[in-house]
Amino acid sequence: MVKTLISILIALGLLIGISIFQMIHIEREFADFSAQLEALYDKTEAQTATREDAEAVRVSWNEKKKTMHIWVPHTDISYVDYWLSEGLSLIDTKQYDQALSKIEVLIDICRKIPSSYSFSVENVL
């Protein structure tokens, strides 16, 4: 009885702990990345974005990705990778108008991925 209760409490604690940590961690990481993308968007809109700016965003994403793989499906991460590569290469070639739409998609993805981990009826069902 005591052993079972302890095992229930441990399992429950682990599950609650992991889910809270996951929610906070993902939300924070994507909010941070989203802020970086918005800054890049503003620079791109002003046509002042440089290769270094784009590279800084990529390095930051690559760093976040390392821990993100534990929590987020790898397909979601490769989706961000794909749009980021397209956007950054367009900035590199100074095609700012086209790069804007790619960065906009990325900002949208960064909003949607964390919301898919929140407790809501649509996510449960």
Partner: peptide
């Protein structure tokens, strides 16, 4: 399926 984080299965 390596696209799914292992943690999902463990949880």
């Amino acid at each position: 399926d390596i696209s799914i984080p292992l943690l999902y299965g463990i949880v």
